[in-house]
């Protein structure tokens, strides 16, 4: 009889445990602190006043770093554009110089040719 009761109590306890285990996800879902990693939950539980400060501080650091990286990226990008612009203007300057030299020598040569023709005519 006693043994039968003990077995029954054990069975109920066991069933309760199984039920608890089975319902654990549901409990976790309904109260999301449960699913948090321990390392983050612990300081929050221990020093609730510190948590928001730490979070703010980390966020500020993250913002500064992000801005720095973005600034670097932006300046690098604009520097690349500057480099492209300078190189391009060098190309155009050289070609322009070439055309001007060409025009000057053409003028000189045709004047020379005219002079010779005139001399022939006389």
């Amino acid at each position: 009889m006693k043994t039968g009761l003990r077995v029954k109590v054990a069975c109920v306890a066991l069933a309760a445990c199984v039920l608890l285990l089975a319902c654990a996800p549901a409990l976790a879902d309904s109260r999301d602190e449960w699913s948090r990693p321990v390392s983050e939950a612990q300081p929050a539980a221990n020093t609730p006043a510190n948590e928001s400060e730490l979070r703010k501080q980390l966020e500020a650091e993250y913002r500064v770093e992000l801005e720095k990286r973005l600034e670097q990226e932006r300046s690098s990008y604009s520097a690349s554009l500057t480099s492209l612009w300078i190189a391009n203007s060098a190309v155009w300057a050289i070609l322009l110089l070439f055309v001007i030299m060409q025009a000057l020598s053409a003028r000189k040569k045709s004047a020379e040719l005219d002079r010779i023709k005139q001399q022939r005519g006389n």
Binding site: S80, L81, L84
Partner: peptide, 9 residues
């Protein structure tokens, strides 16, 4: 390093 636009040179 990243060349960005400059690689068009």
């Amino acid at each position: 390093i990243n060349l960005y636009e400059s690689y068009r040179i």
